[in-house]
């Protein structure tokens, strides 16, 4: 791949997904796009770039999907789920008016393990009997949304993060794969969504998971997305970011939870630990 091809692909990916590809990511682009070229019968990166320049919409989508990282596992990092069980969901249930619905959004859900983990938690902890829940999972990749909707996982995926008792309780074996139980499948609505685009039509959420996505964006894109996520939170809502990406400085609209610094809440929430100085955005 010549530098001009890398530059074109990097600019295209940034424009379409927000993902920043530093110049040292040539190997990454090649390792993701050469198999795609082979799959599509294209001669190589040069042919992919030509297709992108022509405006081939299918190729554009496939290139974006190939360049996104879909690493995920059930109950990833554990702590956010422990916080959901101990603090977030009980608080949301207590504040939920009779007949109300607690709305949860997994904003970059990949193949669905995160929203299904939340659905398991809601069932296992008896929260489902205390309130009505709506869980939405979105991802930029249509292929990942199709996998999440299907709810069928390989043996490797099913074993990563899932205790074996949960596997038996919530999955049915299909050969070497494991399918999520209908009870959990019905709890989650999946749809493709590019977070760079307007998502106000989804409405407001009491809990937003947006983990391990901001790390791929540059500072202005991160700050803008955080502001828009803040606008999508209900006044008492929570925002859960990835373990490695909780920013030192937040936009004015957000603040850390007073007692659980890894959790983000709206700055106007009384349980927030308000920032000590006006903040314009997070830093690189």
């Amino acid at each position: 791949m010549i530098p001009a091809e890398f530059d074109y692909i990097a600019a295209f990916i940034k424009r379409r997904s927000g993902i920043v590809l530093a110049p040292d990511k040539t190997y990454l682009v090649e390792s993701r796009l050469l198999p795609l070229a082979h799959q599509l019968g294209l001669a190589g990166i040069k042919a992919i770039v030509a297709g992108l320049r022509r405006g081939d919409a299918t190729l554009q989508r496939l290139v974006v999907e190939a360049m996104t990282t879909n690493e995920t596992l059930f109950f990833r990092d554990r702590l956010p789920f422990e916080q959901c069980e101990r603090l977030i969901l009980p608080q949301l249930i207590a504040a939920c008016p009779p007949g109300g619905t607690i709305r949860i959004w997994c904003a970059a859900c990949s193949s669905g393990q995160e929203p299904y983990s939340l659905a398991m938690l809601i069932e296992e902890c008896g929260f489902a009997a205390q309130a009505r829940f709506e869980i939405i999972g979105t991802d930029i990749s249509q292929a990942m949304i199709a996998r999440a909707t299907d709810g069928l996982y390989t043996q490797f995926e099913a074993q990563r993060g899932l205790a074996v008792r949960r596997l038996l309780q919530w999955f049915a074996q299909e050969g070497t794969h494991w399918r999520i139980a209908p009870q959990l499948r019905q709890r989650v609505t999946f749809m493709p969504l590019n977070l760079l685009e307007d998502f106000s039509r989804l409405g407001h959420f009491d809990l937003i998971f947006c983990r391990n996505l901001l790390i791929y964006f540059d500072q202005p894109t991160r700050a803008a997305l955080l502001d828009r996520l803040a606008a999508a939170l209900t006044p008492g809502g929570f925002l859960v970011l990835g373990a490695a990406e909780a920013p030192d400085r937040l936009s004015d609209a957000l603040a850390r939870h007073r007692d659980e610094p890894s959790l983000i809440v709206r700055a106007d929430n009384p349980i927030s630990a308000r920032p000590t100085r006006p903040l314009a955005g997070i830093e690189d």
Partner: peptide, 18 residues
């Protein structure tokens, strides 16, 4: 706990944590 072979390092570590 229970690991279904084949397994890898990540799965073993996850089960040890479990």
């Amino acid at each position: 706990e229970y690991i279904m072979k084949p397994f890898d390092k990540d799965i073993l570590i996850a089960k040890l944590k479990e």
